[in-house]
Design a binder for these strands. Structure first.
Length: 629
RNA sequence: GCCGGUGUGGCUCAGAGGUAGAGCAGCGCACUCGUAAUGCGCAGGUCAACAGUUCGAAUCUGUUCACCGGCUCCA
């Protein structure tokens, strides 16, 4: 037999060898927790019978880390089984930043129990616990897990004739592997939280107890991760929203955020920017009502497919609905005139405030609310215009996300959901049109099956929050349904009536959610153009208050959002408070500045920039990044 | 909606059957200050709401509401 690793090779007499022996022979076994053999990651004590390329898998590689985490999940399960004998286990995979295990425990497990479980894990790992793999024919595995309803269900769902079982001490688990050869390889782990999770992610199933934890290759990486998560919490938009006086949430209106003057300054600036970009790109703006006849929603399909999320009311004993989407209103505007093919694409934008009933447990600051402003637009086009129009929208999305805000984002193509309307042909056509646009623009994307809107597939843009949760913001939805349902038409070149295609799209998604993302992205330190207070004027003593007032007037005239700190506090204190409020510029004025009619400029991250003339300061501000200048 | 946790002055938190406390913020007074917290004083709470147990409940029990972490669901 012959193994190769980079330059080295090793010949072995015989026709089988374990990977660990092979690695040892090549002196590659030092940090190995698994081996890669011909591209496949396998347990160290797996035996191979053919030649191949071999390399060690160590904890400092992505593959190694995944094994460490997966094995730590098993270690946790073993510890739980000791502390809660008779418990059953669901699934326990490695995930992005750690692992979890879903447990049907024989006792209540709360966060207070985590240290106890962790201690048991350390005990097992400290003593050492060999992990062995055993292949079983399915009937044998079913027998082996006969008293475990979860594993039984999983085994029955596996197609292959044999399954693998990993055993460590009294604990055994149905698992594909690979795993570390011994639990003593596990050191740097921590259990993080407890949550409920439905068996197989289905809310009709039993809720299991999920324990989240994480593990790293080194103690420093674990410490660093914990530090990063703590730091991330300081960026939480709900905390910053309070600290920076941007918005508030009240028991009187769960899911209905209240925006304060500073929050509105940010939101309005965002909207100014949005309007300008849309005018540039050929959109016109409309506004349609909050409450419309229920009949309209029956016709649109919302009654059949979206009723659960809608609020209803009554006017003069007639049923009405609060709008959850803007499309039917847009259509009514479109239909007020006979439209020509020359009018298309017709781009009707609308900052529509929509209400949607969200289940109580899902509300989350500004990210998930029951009333939000969509930066919506409905584009009416001919089928031939789909490609160009979708690409135009993607160009706008890229400009906003990347060029203006510098976000990392991911793109998903969401396909037909179960509860939807239209024919398969229409859906296939729509899905492939969107796919073509993604591919032609070279946009990396993943498929999100069954997550489309009930009237059409969509391209979704996802942004990350401070702790790495992703939120859908922009979306482009292709709709072959609504125009037909509402008899939307245009007169073609041929003089005949045709049905246009409709694109529903948002860039921010929800202005509220986008603001939440922005707050976390900037950790509250908004760039100059967005900052609620752009300049804080800080008089050193009361005698400088007049000059401060004068400057304040000047800045207001320049269209700059400024405030004066008139408190009779020391300079250091006023600076500190302005820093904490993350104001981009502080103007410090004392005798010197008052006398010379200059301003002492302090930039929030660069510090004191010295005194300068008002003109020089204006020039400085004009150099700030500003997409709406 | 489901599982678990939490709810005490504007904010951050202490108090765990005997009738509510700190720091910060606020207000008043003094200080008039040169780049991240001046000092002193004052005021502020039906302890989320409702019901119950008890001689007595912020504290124990139940219900409800809201929030936090997840699950499910979605911008």
């Amino acid at each position: 037999m012959k193994f190769t690793h980079e330059e080295k090779s090793y010949s072995f007499d015989g026709n089988s060898i374990s990977l660990i022996e092979a690695l040892k022979a090549l002196s590659l076994d030092k940090k190995a927790i698994a081996a890669k053999f011909n591209g496949e990651v396998l347990d160290l004590n797996r035996t191979v019978t053919n030649d191949g390329e071999i390399s060690p898998v160590t904890p400092d590689t992505p593959e190694g880390l995944e094994i460490i985490r997966h094995s730590t999940a098993h270690l946790m399960a073993q510890a739980v089984l000791r502390l809660y004998p008779g418990s059953h286990f669901g699934v326990g995979p490695a995930i992005k930043d750690g692992f979890y295990y879903d447990i049907d425990a024989t006792g209540n497990i709360t966060e207070d129990d985590l240290p106890k479980i962790e201690a048991e894990m350390r005990k097992i790992a400290g003593k050492g616990e060999p992990v062995t793999r055993e292949d079983m024919a399915k009937p044998d595995a079913l027998k082996f897990f006969a008293d475990d309803p979860y594993k039984t269900e999983l085994i029955n769902d596996i197609d292959a004739p044999t399954v693998s079982v990993y055993k460590q001490g009294e604990y055994a688990d149905l698992c594909r592997g690979p795993h570390v050869p011994d639990a003593k390889a596990l050191h740097n782990f921590k259990l993080l939280s407890v949550a409920g999770a439905y068996w197989r992610g289905d809310e009709h199933n039993k809720m299991l107890t999920r324990i989240y934890g994480t593990a790293f290759a080194t103690p420093d990486e674990l410490k660093e991760y914990i530090r990063r998560m703590e730091e991330a919490k300081l960026r939480d938009h709900r905390k910053l929203g309070k600290d920076l006086d941007l918005f508030s949430l009240h028991e009187e209106g769960p899911g209905f955020p209240f925006f304060h003057p500073k929050g509105m300054a940010v939101m309005n600036t965002l909207i100014d920017f949005w309007r300008r970009e849309h005018v540039k790109r050929g959109y016109t703006e409309i506004k349609t009502p909050q409450i419309l006849d229920r009949e309209l929603w029956i016709r649109s399909g919302h009654w059949d497919h979206y009723r659960e999320n809608m609020y209803f009311t009554e006017i003069d004993e007639k049923p009405y609905a609060i709008k959850p989407m803007n499309c039917p209103g847009s259509i009514l505007v479109y239909k007020t005139q006979l439209r020509s093919y020359r009018d298309l694409p017709m781009r009707l934008a609308e900052l529509g405030c929509v209400h949607r009933h969200e289940r109580s447990g899902v509300l989350h600051g500004l990210m998930r609310v029951r009333c939000f402003t969509q930066d919506d637009a409905h584009t009416y086009i001919t089928p031939e215009q789909i490609r160009d129009e979708v690409m135009r929208i993607m160009e706008l999305d890229k400009y906003v996300y990347t060029d203006v805000f510098g976000f990392k984002y991911t793109v998903e193509l969401s396909t037909r959901p179960e509860d939807s309307m239209g024919t398969d042909e229409q859906w296939n056509e729509a899905e492939s049109a969107l796919r073509r646009a993604l591919e032609e623009t070279g946009t990396p994307y993943t498929i999100n099956p069954g997550d489309g809107a009930f009237y059409g597939p969509k391209i979704d843009f996802h942004l990350e929050d401070c702790i790495g949760r992703t939120w859908q913001c922009g979306t482009i939805q292709l709709d072959f349904q609504m125009p037909g349902r509402f008899d939307v038409t245009y007169i073609g070149e041929d003089g005949a009536e045709h049905t246009p295609v409709m694109l529903h799209r948002v860039v921010f998604g929800s202005v509220e959610r986008f603001m939440g993302i922005l707050i976390e992205h900037y950790a509250g330190a908004f760039p100059y153009w967005l900052a609620p207070v752009q300049v804080k004027i800080v008089p050193i003593a009361d005698t400088h208050a007049d000059y401060a007032r004068e400057l304040h007037d000047t800045f207001m005239n320049w269209g700059i959002r400024s405030e004066v700190d008139y408190r009779s506090e020391k300079l250091g204190r006023k600076i500190r408070d302005a820093q904490i409020q993350k104001v981009p510029y502080m103007i410090v004025i004392g005798d010197k500045e008052k006398e010379a009619k200059t301003v002492g400029v302090r930039e929030r991250s660069k510090g004191d920039l010295g005194s300068m003339s008002l003109e020089a300061f204006k020039e400085l501000l004009s150099k700030e990044f500003n997409p709406i200048k």
